[in-house]
Amino acid sequence: MFKTPRFFLVRILMKCVFFAVSIFLCSWKKDNTPHCKFKFESFKSLGKIPEPSDIVYDKDSKHFFIVSDHGILFECDLSGKIIRRASEEGMDFEGVEVTDSFVYVSDEKPRKVYKFRKNDLSLVRTYNMTWGGASNKAFESITYNVTKKCFILVSQAPVVIIEYNDDFKEIDRHSFDGARDMSGSRWYNGDMYLLSNLDETIFKCDPITYAIKEYYKIDVLNPEGIAFDADGNVSVTSDDLRRIYFFKKIPTIKQ
């Protein structure tokens, strides 16, 4: 029997469908990582901060430092009210970390880290970083990994955790495939916490290997920053909603 080109094309299409179904079935993985839902208690508007991204708690002043996508660093009280702002502005502030005397800010698009003096928010130094990925998918967060005594910057997508020394020279990098993207990070009490925007999830990770220990699903649209206060209560900023969400302590999952 004569077989037309269409006959062969249909056969190829059927094989492709079979292949697609096989991939589909193989992608169904059982999730053995301990996890639970983590509900927020309340939220406050950050209406005067345009597109708030990261947030960090300063144990000395008992204030938050919050950065905006518009390249502005704010100091706010615990209700999110602005106390002061840095006069030096950048392009696209996405990450903030505070140490004893300094505030570090990552500027995503130009790939820079700014070091501000905490007492007067004056700019002390600028570090130039490198990241070849998409302009708007670079370093969304910065935190100090106390366990390994290094700074880490986390790229949004693909997710790569890059470790730096105090002069922001690269030490090491770790790929992370547990989430589709990453928008926040914070070391707290011996663990590394990573926050995914697309997956709306907080990951509790080993601070040495960054392997996921547990994760917590949160009902916050577009979460971009995570902070822990002196008592361990969690705060999460939402960029799109211009809000700060208040949670209790990270829940304990019964194994």
Partner: peptide, 26 residues
């Protein structure tokens, strides 16, 4: 704008992102 797989060159505060798309179908 939000394509995570493109590549970026930066020179101080100037950035240039290079992206693209290739697709075929039967």
């Amino acid at each position: 704008t939000d394509n995570p797989s493109s590549f970026t060159l930066s020179s101080d505060k100037n950035t240039l992102q290079i992206g693209g798309r290739i697709s075929f179908y039967g």
